[in-house]
Design a protein around this nucleic acid. Structure first.
Length: 496
RNA sequence: GCCCCCAUCGUCUAGUGGCCUAGGACAUCACCCUUUCAAGGUGGAGAUCGCGGGUUCGAAUCCCGCUGGGGGCACCA
């Protein structure tokens, strides 16, 4: 089996593209075969420099590799269509079609076409299907006119009657049947001489011996043209598998690059793990047994089968993705998580770049405190900030946050004073020792842990939600903890 | 408008004629754990399988129609 992923470098690779690549890759790896990466850059107008790199980087990031492609080469190269065009690879096939009378030169210009469409619409004809007058001309007549220098495109001479049918692996049952009078004479070669997708991809798939064409379902309506072309050439048709669309989370339409934040690299920036993306994306249109969801790369390869790809569309679910990322983060060891969190800390300016040994050690010590609270790595700097930057009542937090529910300022001051006293006498600054001391203080003051610990938490972290208190105190350190407590007490006294 | 595809809890999905009083996951609610938040545990609510006709002893599962949703109709891919 030979499959391929053939994106066009018109922008950043979005998540839907990765899904298509993933399914192709999974197929090649599961069934045994080659996965080819081919860049389809025949649209000079929409070409975006750097987009091809973004494609490679994004695919490699999630762990997809290819057996043949622009950078790794292969027996059917080159793997970039513009280069193939330069080599004249498509030309003989155009000639073949022309000579056989299966395609023709069309001299109707884009402007004329636009006018015809407008006129058709004005006349109430909703479906404008173009077929050029030259389709009935002898080839010689077409060539003569072309020789005068008049620009032309090459169009497919689609049959006027009959029907075209093909099967789709994912929509297993009946054949998809299209009446030929519903087709039109699509452009195969632009007036610039550059082939259009419909032609170029097909020639390349043939030359590269692709046996299964797996792509997004938006291609179903144009598959009749492709099938016609295979038959015209007398080439064996590949198998077709059109993947279900991924719909936007609100259900309104397909996920789109323009409307949604779905550039693959954006997920990386937000702290999604590649293993999460691979796993989640595999579940966009495929399922294993309806129960098992968390699967490694190897398990996905072993379990992936074409039969279990859904025909119905998947819906993008950011919450589920987030949840799954949390699961994968919790699977990491402290060392692994620290390593992955480090760049985010550096970007937030909390840790230097390069990080010193001390900084690395400190981070390693703090990681366990946030490990199971993290769902996106980008949240780490925010959760850890108070370990790195001072907290000041009235500046980084509101002093009234110190006062627990059903307590007043005076009571809070008394509690914090007692806490400061107790901690100031504390020699052993480890979590268990701190716990013994503070629990003892609760009994001594006959207050519940909730209010006391809450007040201390706000004083030391500047927030009411933070990791467990004793670990936090130990992490912040004796001197800073006492100073923050003192500052909190002072701020409250000032309020009275 | 025309053509094509799709249709099970709010969402994703299991289900391929009887194992379905429809299973799992996310989200949601409650309780437990608990110093806050998470994580974890337990439990709840949530789907007359879009609607209407068939076929069959029997249908979520097969057939037809309707409706709804999605996609396509470029010298873009």
């Amino acid at each position: 089996m030979r499959v391929r992923f053939a994106p066009s470098p018109t922008g950043n690779l979005h998540i839907g593209g990765v899904r298509t690549a993933l399914f192709n890759w999974l197929c090649a790896r599961h069934y045994g075969g080659q996965f080819v990466l081919r860049i389809e850059d025949t649209d000079e107008k929409r070409f975006v420099p750097g987009a091809a790199d973004d494609i490679s980087v994004s695919l490699r990031w999630v762990g997809i590799d290819w057996d043949e492609g622009p950078d790794v080469g292969g027996p059917y190269g080159p793997y970039v269509q513009s280069e193939r065009f330069e080599l004249g690879i498509y030309q003989p096939f155009v000639e073949q079609l022309l000579t056989a009378g299966l395609a023709y030169m069309s001299f109707t210009t884009e402007e004329e076409l636009a006018q015809m469409r407008a006129a058709a619409e004005a006349a109430g004809i909703k479906a404008f299907r173009f077929r050029g007058p030259e389709r009935d001309w002898p080839l010689e007549q077409q060539r003569e006119l072309a020789a005068t220098g008049k620009p032309y495109t090459v169009r497919l001479k689609t049959p006027l009657e009959g029907e075209t049918r093909f099967r789709d692996l994912i929509r297993g049952g009946d054949e998809i049947v299209v009446q030929n009078d519903q087709l039109q004479d699509i452009v195969l070669i632009k007036s610039t001489g550059m082939p259009v997708y419909h032609f170029a991809h097909l020639v390349d798939d043939y030359l590269m011996k692709i046996t299964l064409v797996m792509r997004g379902e938006e291609w179903v309506p144009s598959t009749p043209y492709h099938v016609l072309l295979y038959d015209f050439f007398g080439w064996p048709r590949p198998l077709f598998a059109h993947l279900p669309a991924i719909l936007r989370s609100d259900g309104k339409g397909k996920l789109s690059k323009r409307k949604d934040d779905v550039a693959t690299q954006r997920f990386r920036e937000r702290g999604y793990l590649p293993e999460t993306m691979l796993n989640y994306l595999a579940l966009q249109g495929w399922s294993y047994d309806g129960v098992t969801e968390i699967m490694t790369r190897e398990e996905l390869i072993a379990r992936f089968t074409l039969e279990r790809i859904q025909p119905s569309p998947a819906r993008w679910n950011p919450e589920k993705l987030r949840d799954m990322n949390g699961i994968y983060i919790r699977k990491l060891t402290t060392d692994q998580l620290a390593e992955r969190v480090l760049p985010f800390m550096q970007q937030a300016g909390l840790i230097g770049d390069p990080a010193t040994a001390t900084e690395q050690e400190y981070l390693l010590r703090l990681i366990p405190l946030i490990h199971e609270r993290l769902e996106e790595l980008q949240e780490a700097p925010e959760l850890l900030e108070f370990f790195y930057r001072d907290v000041k009542p009235g500046e980084t937090y509101n002093p009234t946050d110190l006062i627990p529910k059903k307590h007043d300022t005076a009571q809070t001051v008394a509690m914090l004073r007692a806490a400061w006293e107790a901690l100031n006498n504390q020699a052993d600054w480890t979590p268990p020792a701190l716990e013994t001391t503070l629990r003892g203080l609760c009994e001594q003051l006959s207050v519940k842990p909730g209010p006391l610990f809450g007040a201390i938490r706000v004083a030391v972290t500047g927030r009411s939600v933070a990791p467990p208190l004793f670990d936090t105190l130990a992490g912040v350190g004796r001197e800073r903890a006492l100073a923050r407590l003192a500052a909190a007490i002072a701020a409250l006294e000032q309020m009275e």
